[in-house]
């Protein structure tokens, strides 16, 4: 029994790394999603082109390939990243590309007359975005962002393959040391599921808050 508590501690330490990766990866993905999403609808074509290339590239290959590329190929170009940095970068850039399409779709779905009204009222581009477009577009983005965050959480398991000691890696360690397979894998499956539930209920709560003043508008 004492042994098991030791192994459980190991898995919980891994869970901490998984949470860390999910939070930092999501933060990076959020920033990148807005940059690329706004870039795709920018008026200046090089910006549009750049954003499209980024999105197609990162959606066209899987997180696994990108992670290995960042970890194994970039060092030859003189960029050596720690496994954690490589993981956060690959996760953030990958999920950010999916998020960018969500941002673009939500902004474009704000009715056209809203934009025309802001022009008529002589708002600056920043004011249009901040006070009129985004407050209406954000609630549309949230549910998909929640799903993307869960996808990111699931993708963190892949970083165990570049020797980052996340939950999946620790489960493998426990398997190797004890020869027991059912207990470690069932434990981490349950933990992943609980984390996914936490994300989806968190996003639902946020959605309720953001849409509180929008009754009757949509």
């Amino acid at each position: 029994m004492a042994e098991w508590s030791g192994y459980l501690t190991l898995i919980l330490l891994g869970a901490l790394v998984t949470v860390q990766l999910t939070v930092m990866g999501s933060a990076l993905a959020l920033v990148v999603a807005f940059l690329a999403g706004l870039g795709r609808i920018a008026r200046w074509w090089p910006l549009r082109w750049l954003a499209t290339a980024y999105i197609e590239f990162f959606r066209g290959t899987s997180i696994f390939v990108q992670l290995f590329w960042v970890y194994f190929v970039l060092p030859f170009a003189g960029v050596t990243l720690s496994p954690l940095a490589a993981g956060v970068m690959a996760l953030g850039l990958n999920v950010g590309a999916y998020g960018a399409e969500v941002v673009r779709g939500a902004i474009l779905s704000v009715p056209k007359d809203q934009r025309e009204a802001t022009v008529a009222l002589n708002l600056t581009p920043y004011q249009r975005m901040r006070h009129v477009i985004l407050p209406q577009a954000l609630p549309l983005m949230l549910p998909t962002f929640g799903n993307n965050a869960i996808e990111l959480l699931k993708a963190t398991a892949v970083v165990s393959l570049i020797s980052l000691t996340d939950m999946t890696f620790q489960a493998q360690v426990v398997r190797a040391q004890t020869g027991s397979t059912l207990v470690p894998f069932l434990t981490i499956l349950a933990l992943y599921f609980l984390m996914a539930l936490a994300i989806s209920s968190g996003v639902r709560a946020l959605e309720r808050r953001l849409t509180a003043g929008l009754d009757g508008v949509r």
Binding site: T156, T168, A171, L189, F193
Partner: peptide
């Protein structure tokens, strides 16, 4: 819901090792 909320990699390990 459970299968959707957990990583494919871990599910593969489960099938392959357990």
């Amino acid at each position: 819901e459970f299968l959707r909320g957990t990583p494919l990699l871990v599910q593969l390990y489960f099938i392959f090792y357990v």
